[in-house]
Computed example of a mutant assay.
Amino acid sequence: MDSSAWGLLFQGAWTTAWISAVSIALGVVLGLIIALIRLARLPFIHQLLGTYISIARATPLVTLVLFIFLSGPTFGINLDRNVAAIMALTLNTTAFNAEIWRSAFNNFSNDQREAAMAVGMTPWTYFRRIMLPQTVITSLPNLVNEMSFLVKGSPAIAVIGIVDLTRVTNRISAVTYDPLPPILAAALLYMAIIDSWYGVSGSLNVRQID
């Protein structure tokens, strides 16, 4: 491949990376909020959020992308392609992240809570200084795995015309009639994006151990 092809691939990789990164950041935060709300077990809200999680986890990502982008005009809303892609990816990953957070909170040792209350800590102080930091560390491997799954599923956004890494690869293959080089290059770029998430996870874990 020539330099122009590599330039297009890097542009596609950048599009994949930043859309995935924004969706991941939103998904982690929203997933945490939903997990905490569900732990409160407010009857109607708990059931409503549980239904959302079940639907979002069961719906193919490409279907979710198409639904959000194409249903907008029905309600008089013309969504930008990038916004629609971020919304779809965020809705998908939030559902998985919420269950990861909820599982971590449910498995947290109650002994630490009793000890914190015994020394006079308020529930908020206990949550902020003891429960949340430890839950973040224990949840990190699963959260990073979910991040990698989202990046792998991100080619779904190409169906609404976003020129991501996969779409660029297809375009180059169509022009050169030699699909193997761009596919191999795209695979390496996807690996680089995903490995960066695992690198962040590893550095955080080492820092916690130190």
Rank of each mutant, 00 (worst) to 15 (best):
G199Q: 02
Y177S: 12
V136R: 08
A192W: 13
V144M: 03
T166M: 00
S196I: 01
Y190W: 02
L150D: 00
S148M: 14
A185K: 06
I137T: 10
L180G: 09
I183E: 07
S173L: 11
L165T: 06
F149P: 06
L140M: 09
I194W: 11
R167E: 13
D178G: 07
N170I: 10
I162L: 09
L180D: 00
P181Q: 03
K152R: 14
V136W: 14
A186K: 09
L180M: 14
T169A: 01
S173H: 06
I157D: 05
M147L: 03
S201G: 15
A158M: 05
S139I: 02
A174L: 09
I160Y: 12
S154F: 00
S173C: 13
S196A: 15
R129I: 07
T135L: 05
I130F: 04
P181C: 10
R129Q: 04
N205F: 13
A158T: 02
L143Y: 13
L188E: 02
K152D: 10
D178V: 08
D178Q: 15
G153W: 14
D164W: 06
P155G: 11
K152P: 11
V206G: 09
L165G: 01
A158Q: 03
L150M: 06
P155Q: 05
A187H: 04
G199A: 01
I157L: 09
G202M: 04
N205G: 13
L184G: 11
L132W: 08
F149H: 15
T138P: 08
S196F: 11
W197F: 15
I193F: 05
V144N: 05
A186G: 08
V168D: 09
M191L: 15
L204M: 02
Y198T: 12
A187P: 10
W197I: 05
M147R: 12
V136D: 04
T135M: 12
T176W: 08
P155I: 07
T138M: 13
A186V: 02
I193W: 08
V151C: 04
A186L: 05
V151P: 01
S201E: 12
P133E: 01
G153T: 03
S154M: 03
I172G: 06
W197T: 15
R129P: 00
A158R: 09
